[in-house]
């Protein structure tokens, strides 16, 4: 096989993997902390992209790219925390919280997606690429925008990881994730930390949306396919540590890139699901998982 093609496949797998890692991190963060699955995560992706478009596009507010992205991050954090307050917190103490939160977060996803359609219309939009041009390393050609994307994803994930590990609120979030009762007995504000986790998840999802928006055309339902992939990543990788969905995302990205080339675009999702099922048969808690739910 041609080396150039191989390198191309690996490269596109890396870009996909980076995006999936960013999406899956928020999903697994919510799962490990609150013990619920957030179906509105895909809508967060779309919302982040539309907000960034609104702030940065010459047709709308026309802010420079960096402040536009930062502003959309702040808004996404607030929206995430608000949605936790509206959709999840009222049902917190119910026995059937897992089932109820499936419905309420799905409702949130529907409302957000249709809201996007109402506000911004169905016409496709695109955020300008992060950078122009490309770098050449012999046979390998990398677009600057892809390099920046991967670098940014790495930096964001590193920031979130360090925040959870070393900052005071991050530590308290992990404590709340591991033992709600003990955290409350020490006087920690458990619902506040839950809202913060939701906010961070929404923020990272929104950033993923911005990056997707620079590569593809945006539509209000642009988040549903990435949500499916992020779900595969989380289940495939397990959630034992903050980093396990990230490794899983990189593997899934490569598997997808290779199967798109060798099996075809339409069969690639089937290959992913098949891989996931095989992994679950061998290691039910996920590739890097442990049985307990911790952060």
């Amino acid at each position: 096989m041609d080396t150039a093609i191989l390198i191309d496949i690996v490269k596109s797998g890396l870009v996909l993997g980076a995006l999936y890692a960013l999406m899956a991190t928020g999903l697994s963060l919510v799962w490990t902390t609150l013990g619920i699955f957030n179906f509105a995560h895909g809508a967060f992706i779309a919302l982040g992209a539309y907000l960034a478009w609104q702030f940065s596009s010459a047709d709308a507010w026309g802010l420079p790219m960096v402040p536009a992205i930062l502003l959309s991050c702040a808004v996404m954090f607030a929206i995430g925390a608000l949605l936790h307050f509206l959709l999840v917190k009222p049902f917190e103490r119910r026995q059937d919280i897992v089932l109820i939160s499936v419905i309420t977060t799905l409702a949130g996803a529907v409302i957000l997606e249709n809201g996007l359609q109402l506000i911004w219309g169905a016409r496709s939009k695109q955020i300008p690429p992060l950078a122009e041009g490309a770098v050449e390393f012999g046979a390998l050609s990398l677009r600057n925008s892809e390099l920046i994307l991967m670098g940014l994803v790495l930096a964001i994930l590193l920031c979130v990881g360090l925040f959870l590990r070393y900052s005071r609120p991050g530590r308290s979030m992990r404590a709340v994730a591991q033992n709600q009762d003990a955290a409350a007995l020490l006087g920690l504000n458990v619902p506040l930390y839950f809202s913060m986790v939701f906010g961070i998840a929404a923020l990272t999802a929104g950033l993923a949306g911005v990056f997707v928006g620079t590569i593809r055309f945006m539509s209000p339902s642009m988040g549903s396919e990435p949500l499916m992939k992020a779900l595969i990543v989380v289940i495939f990788g397990g959630v034992a540590r903050f980093s396990s969905p990230i490794y899983a995302a990189l593997i899934i990205g490569q598997i997808e890139a290779f199967s798109v080339y060798f099996v075809g675009l339409y069969w690639a999702p089937a290959v992913l699901f098949f891989t996931m099922i095989v992994v679950l048969l061998i290691k039910p808690e996920g590739l890097f998982g442990k049985y307990q739910r911790t952060l």
Partner: peptide
């Protein structure tokens, strides 16, 4: 608490 596990991973 009795037999407190606290935060196992911290």
């Amino acid at each position: 608490q009795q037999g407190n596990l606290l935060f196992p991973e911290l």
